[in-house]
Simulated assay, not measured.
Amino acid sequence: MAATFSDLHTADGLKALEAHLAGKAYVSGDAISKDDVKVFAAVPSKPGAEFPNAARWYETVSTALASRFPGKAVGVNLPGAGLASAAAAPAAEAAKEEDDDDLDLFGDETEEDKKAADERAAAKASTKKKESGKSSVLMDVKPWDDETDMKKLEEAVRSVQMEGLTWGASKLVPVGYGIKKMTVMLTIVDDLVSVDSLIEDHLTVEPINEYVQSCDIVAFNKI
């Protein structure tokens, strides 16, 4: 709904509705729609003679709703509302159900409804993409033995490149018997890189496994 109305139980609220309906039969479009139901449900009774446009629209919507929702309203007491009070409760309930279940009371959605739905979906997708998290990982890369060329080991590890993976600083750490392991930092985008897949499918397969015997995750922290 392009226009927004509030305080429709007051004269100021009805003035805004009166101005909006000037030259229009309905709140939006050329036929009764969900927008009319929502606004109708917020108007407690038929507007007075000082609001001719709103009164005409109210009578039109009231008649249409009465035919769609026959029966007496329960728990609604609006003196002087007549037919409108009988239709207001089911109209309000119908509007609520439409919000909860996307129920279309009057046929196909208008182009404006579809456009608004597409914009909401695009906004959600954009927000989700922006919120994609990152993680900082500390990894131990172990060679086969003390004869492994650790410089080539590091070059082989860093040769693995993929979207969402950034290699950081590294250092050699003695583990005994002349053997050293390489401890390396890396940053990953969680939605793009799996650490398990990185190790199993890239770091411990040919030709890198000529230098790398195994890899262990020392620390894994969300950024």
Results as ranks from 00 to 15, higher is better:
residue 25 A to C: 04
residue 14 L to K: 00
residue 35 D to Y: 11
residue 5 F to E: 00
residue 5 F to N: 00
residue 24 K to M: 08
residue 21 L to G: 04
residue 12 D to P: 08
residue 12 D to W: 05
residue 29 G to L: 08
residue 10 T to C: 13
residue 16 A to F: 02
residue 35 D to P: 00
residue 26 Y to G: 00
residue 10 T to N: 06
residue 37 V to Q: 08
residue 33 S to C: 06
residue 24 K to Y: 10
residue 7 D to I: 02
residue 8 L to N: 09
residue 12 D to K: 14
residue 14 L to D: 02
residue 11 A to H: 13
residue 14 L to N: 02
residue 7 D to T: 04
residue 30 D to Y: 11
residue 7 D to H: 14
residue 35 D to G: 06
residue 36 D to H: 07
residue 25 A to N: 14
residue 42 A to S: 09
residue 35 D to F: 10
residue 38 K to I: 14
residue 32 I to N: 01
residue 40 F to Y: 12
residue 34 K to I: 09
residue 36 D to P: 05
residue 22 A to E: 14
residue 22 A to I: 06
residue 8 L to F: 06
residue 36 D to G: 05
residue 26 Y to F: 15
residue 20 H to E: 12
residue 32 I to H: 01
residue 12 D to C: 07
residue 23 G to R: 12
residue 21 L to I: 04
residue 31 A to I: 02
residue 16 A to T: 03
residue 8 L to P: 06
residue 42 A to T: 03
residue 29 G to K: 09
residue 41 A to K: 06
residue 6 S to L: 12
residue 13 G to P: 06
residue 39 V to L: 01
residue 35 D to T: 01
residue 16 A to L: 08
residue 6 S to I: 13
residue 16 A to V: 03
residue 40 F to N: 03
residue 25 A to I: 05
residue 29 G to N: 10
residue 25 A to P: 05
residue 10 T to A: 10
residue 12 D to R: 12
residue 13 G to I: 11
residue 14 L to R: 09
residue 43 V to Y: 00
residue 29 G to Y: 02
residue 13 G to E: 05
residue 28 S to G: 11
residue 12 D to H: 12
residue 36 D to Y: 02
residue 23 G to V: 10
residue 9 H to S: 14
residue 16 A to S: 11
residue 41 A to M: 07
residue 5 F to S: 01
residue 7 D to V: 03
residue 7 D to Q: 14
residue 18 E to G: 05
residue 35 D to H: 12
residue 21 L to K: 01
